[in-house]
Design a binder for these strands. Structure first.
Length: 481
DNA sequence: AAATGTGCCAACCGCACAAGG
DNA sequence: ACCTTGTGCGGTTGGCACATT
């Protein structure tokens, strides 16, 4: 037996709203509010409309400060980045764009932005994929085709977008497109070249880390405990003078504290080898100490990884597997034109003074230990000098959403280059400076910042973009120099 | 000029979830 | 524990406007 209809379908008007109906609804809600009952509302006003229809009309059209059309490049960036990371959670995406409704964004994505980003070659490409075994080289293609066919269209889109960002001809991966470094940065590039090459051997070349692998990475994150002393030092500095002096950190340590053997092990591990150990080890994280070691918190963290393996948000895992046949995608045009958006000069974010890169002047550090909610970072691909930090909304508690964590979206944006990174958080009085940081293949190791670990000047930071399930709310800016 | 195709967007539909009885 | 109800969300559709053939 089906569900009872929410209203008498025979006696409700459908279709476009008339100006009179709009006026009635708006006048009533302006004066009395919705009364907490949309179903009863149309009868009170005398509208022959379904309550759901009234709600939709109000939320999508009549509500104050609603914007229609005219999406800016900045909004495009946000929508795209969030779609790649969280998929079609339009309401969450809409929460990042004041005045925009989920319906508006959904329509905009489906009718324009998706085409703009994915280009028109998708179909021909996918058609080729549907004929396995044509190319003798594609011995494993049949299996992967099955896998691809099982992906949702959303996952495929996100995968394609992701793969585009890994395109070696893309802006992100092609140094010739990058803005020129200042002399200090050039010097740092040269002086750290051998480190880059050394680290490169320890990196997972062109291969996104699956959620399972990410879980594995977290399972080894207790290696970071060795840094706790340094962190404590930093914390004292932060809470005291807001200054972190030059660190002795050499940056030679393998990525994320991994040895090559550990990395190999990680890459060869099956999820079943990894997941069972995670809950034991993550209990050692600072973040859980901050959260009083609550098992609830432990649970959401575990669920986060489980969710990352589920169908709804698994495209990162998908990327890992499909990436084995990356050539299938590599000649996609870069649907997203950002070359023209590269600023000719790096912007100084408003609100604080940034000391010269080679200055020995004290630098302020963001007080990051008391994050009430979580943060995640995503790159503003339009403006390569800017990435953004998002904050978890408190309202999502109870929906298996982490109270706080730090995540990253895509590593490709950062590939190569040396940046001084200054994190500016308006809600904090001070800022964090990473100076210098070698961004070779970058994604924030979620655990590094998740546990409130301070970013140490001179250290090599590894970002991990793989296990992302953020529910963003507010935006803060983080800018690179 | 008519037919057809395409883009766009408001609105609808059905499902999932939470709250309350 | 189960059922009912209201709400929120994402996918889909219908229809209008404009472009192309």
């Amino acid at each position: 037996m089906g569900r009872a209809p929410c209203c008498d379908k025979a006696n409700v008007k459908k279709g476009p709203w008339s100006p009179e109906e709009d006026a009635k609804l708006k006048a009533y809600i302006d004066e009395y509010g919705t009364g907490g009952n949309w179903i009863a509302l149309p009868q009170k006003i005398g509208l022959k409309r379904c309550g759901k229809s009234c709600r939709l009309r109000w939320l999508n059209y009549l509500r104050p400060n609603i914007k229609h059309g005219g999406f800016s490049e900045e909004e495009d960036n946000i929508i795209c980045s969030l779609y790649i990371s969280i998929g079609s959670r339009w309401s969450v995406i809409a929460a990042q764009l004041p005045g925009r409704t989920d319906n508006d964004i959904k329509n905009y994505w489906n009718t324009r932005l998706k085409k703009k980003l994915l280009g028109r070659r998708k179909n021909s490409r996918m058609n080729r994929l549907s004929v396995p075994g044509q190319d003798p080289k594609d011995v494993n293609l049949g299996e992967e085709n099955k896998y691809l066919q099982n992906l949702s269209s959303s996952a495929l889109e996100r995968l394609q977008l992701h793969m585009q960002l890994q395109n070696p001809l893309s802006f992100y991966n092609n140094p010739t497109f990058w803005p020129k470094l200042n002399p200090f940065q050039e010097k740092m590039v040269q002086s750290h070249q051998f480190l880059n090459e050394s680290n490169q051997n320890n990196l997972i070349q062109g291969t996104p880390i699956s959620p399972q692998q990410a879980a594995g990475e977290c399972s080894t994150i207790s290696n970071l405990k060795a840094d706790e002393h340094q962190n404590s030092e930093n914390e004292r500095n932060i809470q005291g003078s807001n200054f972190v002096g030059q660190s002795n950190y050499t940056g030679i340590e393998p990525v994320s504290g991994f040895t090559q053997a550990e990395l190999d092990d990680l890459l060869n591990s099956e999820a079943s080898d990894v997941l069972p150990t995670q809950s034991h080890n993550i209990a050692e994280f600072d973040c859980f100490k901050e959260m009083n070691g609550s098992m609830d918190n432990l649970e959401w963290w575990s669920n986060d990884f489980v969710d990352a393996n589920s169908a709804s948000s698994n495209s990162w895992d998908s990327a890992t597997r499909v990436n084995q046949s990356e050539e299938m995608y590599q000649d996609y045009g870069l649907g997203y034109s950002m070359q023209t958006e590269v600023p000719t000069k790096m912007e100084n974010p408003g609100g604080f003074q940034n000391p010269p890169s080679n200055s020995t002047a004290p630098k302020q550090v963001m007080k990051a230990t008391k994050l009430e909610y979580g943060w995640f970072i995503y790159p503003n691909r339009c403006n390569p000098s800017t990435i953004r930090i998002y904050q978890w909304p408190s309202g999502f508690a109870g929906r298996n959403v982490p109270k706080f964590t730090v995540q990253i979206i895509n590593e490709a944006w950062y590939v190569g280059g040396v940046f001084d990174v200054q994190i500016s958080c308006p809600s904090f009085a001070s800022t964090t400076l990473i100076n210098p940081t070698i961004f070779r293949r970058i994604s924030i190791d979620t655990c590094l910042l998740k546990n409130g670990r301070k970013i140490i000047p001179g250290e090599v930071i590894t970002f991990d973009y793989s296990n992302i399930l953020p529910y963003p709310l507010s935006v803060l800016d983080m800018k690179c120099f």
